[in-house]
Each structure stands twice: as structure tokens, then as C-alpha cells.
Computed example of a mutant assay.
Amino acid sequence: MNDLVERFEVAFNQIHQHLKEFNGYPKNDNFVELLQRSKLKHSVIRVHFDLLKQYAKLRNALVHERIRDDYYIATPHLEVVESLEHIKQTLDQPPEALEFATHPVIFFKDTSLLTEIMTAFDQQGVSQFPIYSKDNEFLGLLTNDGIVRWIARSVDNNVVNLAGVTAKDVLQDGLNPSIEFLSSHGTVYELEERFERSLEEERKLKAVILTESGKANDAPLGIVTTWDLIKVDRRNEDE
């Protein structure tokens, strides 16, 4: 029985350490307070929030209501210990962001005709394409919404002339959405933090593009939108 208590306390303390790290090691390191803050940032905490709050109560009973050194007023069941250890393991070894990204990434050059890109929107069923220069410099993300707004601005006598219009022409219209880059080896926590920070800054982050080095001008290996983050929640729920 004491072995289960020890395993429980070890896993709990390691999770507590992760929570401190997630929140920049604040002065107030109360477990439940850190849990509350962390659930806004990380899906694994959000999914297991209620469970971890209950485990915190059990931990308090183990630590503060011990009758004597070798006798506890409450002890965890094996399934509780294993559940806590599983959460700890997920925090120790978070999945890579690339697991939740759309890949491979279809992209176009700035000289690509708009009609070609519009055809790809229809055929591929996606809503955005990265645009690069001939020197592989990232220029922006061309979205279907951006194209619609460009067309609305370009109507002349109820006619829009698309002849010769390129991706560069649309991007130059100032409709570039906010994009960030992350290494393809980055964790899902780093990915979630990018979107969370954009919310805090009241800046709508359209997507995070994953490259080998995390630099903008490397080849795109994956692209993640807010819709893709739903996959993270679902995976954690399934586990």
C-alpha cells in the first residue's frame, strides 16, 4: 500500500513541477492555481483538469492528514496511480507538433496565376496556401477569404478580370494574415503557446507553419490552424 502512495506522490510532484515550468515558476506555486492557469494553455491539462483537481485533494489528504509515518487516512487505488502516471508521462514526453499538422504542404510561387491557385482551392479542399518567391523566401499565406476580399475590391462594372493576376498581386493588397513558424521537432505545447500568446496579444494567428529549423524560408513540412488544435484535445480525451 505504501508503494502506491509513494508512486502517487512522485508522479504528483513531477506534474507539479511541469505546471511551475508552464507558468514561469511564479511565486504562488499552489498546485490548483497553476492548474487553473495551465488549462488555458495546454490541452492535456484542460482535458484532465477535473481529474487532477481531485488528485490534488487526495494528495493533501496523504500529506497533511497522515495518522503516523506508516499509516495514511486515505490511499490511492492502483488505477488512480496509473492514471496519474500516464498524465505525467504525457507531460514528460509530449508529442511533436507535426503529428497534428496538415502535411504535406501544398504551396505556390508568387508568380503562380491566381486562377491556378483558385483551382487548387477547389480540388484540394484547403483554405490557405503558403506563397514563396523564386528564391524560396516566404512571402505570405494566401487564403480563400483573402482572395474573396481581393475580388470584391477589384470588381469593375460587375466584372473581375483575372487574366495575368498572380499570387503576388493579391498578397500586395495588404490582406496577409498573421503567421508564425516553429521547428517541425517542436512539441505540441510550444504550438499551443503560440496560439495562446496571440490571443493574449489580441492578434489573430491564422496558422503556424512547421519547417525543419523553424525558420520562415525553409521548406514547409506542415501547417497548423486553430482547427487542427481540435485534434490535440480529441487525442488527449481518447487517451
Rank of each mutant, 00 (worst) to 15 (best):
H16L: 07
N176C: 08
N176P: 00
I117A: 01
E6D: 13
Q172C: 06
L182I: 13
L91P: 02
K53L: 04
T119Q: 11
Q93G: 00
Y71M: 11
N158T: 13
T226V: 14
Q14F: 04
H48I: 00
F138A: 01
H42S: 03
L52H: 06
I179S: 01
L199F: 07
I15A: 01
L78Y: 09
F49V: 07
V32R: 07
D92N: 12
T166Q: 13
Y132I: 08
T226R: 15
T211H: 08
T90M: 10
W150R: 03
T115Y: 01
R234Y: 00
D228H: 04
L141F: 06
E200D: 11
W150P: 00
H48R: 12
T225V: 13
V126Q: 02
H42Q: 05
S184M: 07
H48E: 04
H64F: 12
H18Y: 14
V32E: 10
T226Y: 15
E21D: 15
E137C: 07
E202H: 14
T102A: 09
S213E: 12
F195L: 05
W150H: 04
T102D: 11
S83W: 10
Y55S: 00
E65H: 13
R234D: 05
L4S: 05
D70R: 15
L58D: 05
A120E: 02
L221N: 12
V224R: 01
V159P: 00
H48K: 09
D70Q: 09
K88W: 11
G146H: 04
P76F: 13
M118R: 13
T211K: 10
Q89L: 10
L19P: 03
V232Q: 01
K57V: 10
E6R: 13
L51H: 12
E239W: 13
D156S: 09
I147S: 03
A216Q: 12
R7N: 12
V159I: 14
